[in-house]
Design a protein around this nucleic acid. Structure first.
Length: 573
RNA sequence: GGGAACGUAGCUCAAUUGGCAGAGCAAGCGACUCUUAAUCGUUUGGUUGUGGGUUCGAGUCCCACCGUUCCCA
């Protein structure tokens, strides 16, 4: 076809590649005008919210001669012949720009036809800086009456629908920056999150707690029952684990003589993903010498209610339709009591496991095969019958020793430890003990854990000899507390999923295509090169597999179903 | 790990029993000095997640895979 494709006439464009090409062409045109589509700096005098507040009383049609400068993203354009209205959004809010051809062209004498250039070369999504005065339009919209503008950053990609926004959850999480641009409540969530962590630190600092940073890379992953991530240090030639808790290092600091320490930081657990779990999440652990778990209860309820008051201005918060009252004191109940209330079974009365098991089964509790002590049974009953019913903040006290290897034995109740967990909206939100300080007891408990680990329990703890050595030097009586920050933020921001309070939650990679592969028949090594550049050598792969891979109509699919997860591999670095 | 649902244009969504893939917004072009989901005219834009299968014919039915969401463990 001999169609006339004049290079000066932009082709009509509406798919992504064409929109992008059109905008890249605009970048070139901006440069031809001697302007920089990617500016270095801009000085604003105000933010949008400040202007909205300052001129709230300006009457319709009224103007004031105050000079202002403001910058932000163009999120809407309403363009007339010699007049245009843009909506500008900055971090604080929105304000309209009143753009008049006459005024702009009379001011920007260096740029001939400045108004028309703005009309032609700007798009929604661009970052724009403007200077001008203040005017409330006749229709009542507070506006900056623009005399000068500068395109600070040219955007190449279109924003989502101005009315419906971005709703696709996958895209919202994978491209959080777009989500943040178009969904103001998402920005608000992360603003509140920052205020919460700041308020927690402020609360603790005014009470003389020190925040001390402990290692993320650890040679033993201890302090919790969880599977760790494993990594490798090349020059030291050693395996390292990402921390699953900060507990054992913070306790070393107590041994060292600090009396009030905490750390608010990222924890990594190699576990599944759900609305309540992200493999990396944020926890605060607090340790106070000479305190017990009763002191930690007071600290917990005061800290959290104080934070809510400071950040939200109230201790009564709405969560997914429930009103949660965080005003202290919170309900305190022992695990035995609360389980008995829910199931009618008093687990304290049993002396042998089998009769307890029978009673539990009669009460409708599923007993997993690895549950072989009364204490674990009690915990099962609690998790199955009680946990989700605890909506208002509740301290659940006095846990079985079997599931609490780092907690001090209860001073009055044999078989139990001085431990509490806080539940709200049916979720565990905090965990605390009178910390175990007897080094010999601690060694026995960790040895029992290590035995479980040796028997295949991937979540059991290892023995951290150096931690035990620290305890042998002597740790004062100490109360410890851990609070899940993400879950607290969920509560205070009324977020249903943990992914709504983590800016960049972990998502599965969209699978990368296989670029090429070859086979070493002698060593039975299948070497696969992926599109992202990584190379994997799959070991002991029979020749038949290689043949089928070569002949299949879909390499990626064959790989997914027949090779990945089925053969061991080495990564080529 | 098990179950259910979903995946269509840049965004938000349609598409009857298996029968021509459509709309709004966004985008291109034109008009317009009070719009605010601007309006009016006009023009574009699709490998229906991927790979197979059934069929004269597949967005729709079947199988596998990828991803997401929710529930359960």
């Amino acid at each position: 076809m001999a169609e006339d494709k004049s290079p000066n006439k932009p082709q009509s464009a509406s798919n992504l590649a064409e929109i992008r090409a059109t905008r890249i062409e605009k970048v070139a045109q901006i440069k031809e005008l001697g302007l920089n589509p990617y500016a270095y700096k801009w000085e604003s005098s105000h933010h949008a919210a400040e202007l909205q507040e300052k001129y709230a009383d300006l009457a319709n049609g009224e103007e004031v001669e105050d000079q202002v400068a403001i910058a932000g993203r163009i999120i809407a354009r309403r363009v007339f012949g010699k007049l245009a209205f843009f909506e500008l959004q900055d971090e604080t809010g929105k304000i309209q720009l009143y753009l008049e051809k006459k005024k702009i062209n009379n001011t920007m004498l260096d740029l001939v036809g400045a108004f028309n250039h703005l009309k032609k070369l700007s798009d929604t999504g661009d970052i724009l800086g403007v200077k001008g005065t203040i005017k409330r339009t006749e229709k009542g919209e507070l506006s900056v009456y623009v005399s000068e503008f500068q395109i600070l950053t040219k955007s190449l990609l279109p924003l989502p629908d101005k009315w419906h926004g971005l709703t696709d959850t996958e895209k919202r999480y994978r491209q959080r920056y777009v989500d943040l641009i178009v969904n103001p409540q998402v920005r608000q969530t992360f603003r509140i999150r920052a205020k919460i962590t700041a308020a927690i630190r402020r609360y603790l600092e005014t009470r003389d707690f020190l925040e001390i940073e402990t290692p993320v890379l650890q040679s033993e992953a201890g302090g919790a029952d969880a599977r760790p991530f494993i990594t490798y240090h090349n020059t030291l030639e050693m395996d390292l684990y990402l921390r699953i808790a900060t507990e054992l290092y913070l306790k070393r600091l107590i041994v060292g003589g600090f009396e009030k320490v905490f750390e608010l930081g990222r924890i990594f657990r190699n576990e599944g993903v759900s609305t309540r779990h992200n493999p990396e999440f944020t926890m605060i652990e607090v340790y106070q010498a000479y305190a017990d778990y009763h002191d930690m209860m007071a600290l917990t309820e005061n800290l959290i209610s104080n934070v809510a008051q400071e950040v939200l201005g109230t201790t009564k918060v709405n969560y997914q339709g429930d009103e949660i009252d965080l005003t202290p004191p919170w309900r305190r109940v022992t695990m035995h009591e609360v389980v008995q209330d829910a199931t009618g079974v008093d687990f304290a009365q049993f002396s042998d496991f089998d009769s307890a098991k029978t009673a539990a089964k009669d009460a409708g509790i599923e007993v997993p095969s690895d549950c072989q002590t009364i204490g674990k049974l009690l915990n099962e009953a609690f998790e199955q019958k009680v946990e989700t019913t605890l909506i208002q903040p509740t301290f659940v006290l006095d846990y079985p020793v079997e599931i609490s290897p780092l907690a001090k034995p209860h001073r009055d109740k044999p078989g139990l430890v001085e431990r509490f967990e806080v539940f709200m909206v049916g979720r565990e939100t905090a965990n605390s003990f009178s910390e175990l300080t007897d080094p010999l007891d601690q060694r026995q408990r960790l040895e029992a854990q290590a035995a479980k680990k040796a028997a295949g329990d991937l979540e059991a703890q290892d023995i951290d000899e150096d931690f035990l050595a620290a305890l042998e030097y002597g740790m004062p009586p100490t109360g410890g507390l851990g609070i899940g920050i993400d879950r607290l933020v969920m509560l205070l921001t009324d977020s249903a999923s943990i992914r709504d309070v983590i800016a960049f939650p972990l998502l599965k990679n969209q699978s990368t295509a296989i670029k090429s592969f070859d086979y070493d028949a002698e060593q039975q090594i299948l070497r696969i090169v992926f599109g992202n550049g990584s190379i994997y050598k799959y070991l002991d792969v029979p020749q038949s597999i290689y043949k089928e891979l070569k002949e299949t109509s879909s390499v990626g699919q064959y790989f997914n179903s027949q090779i990945r997860d089925k053969f061991g591999f080495d990564r080529e670095v």
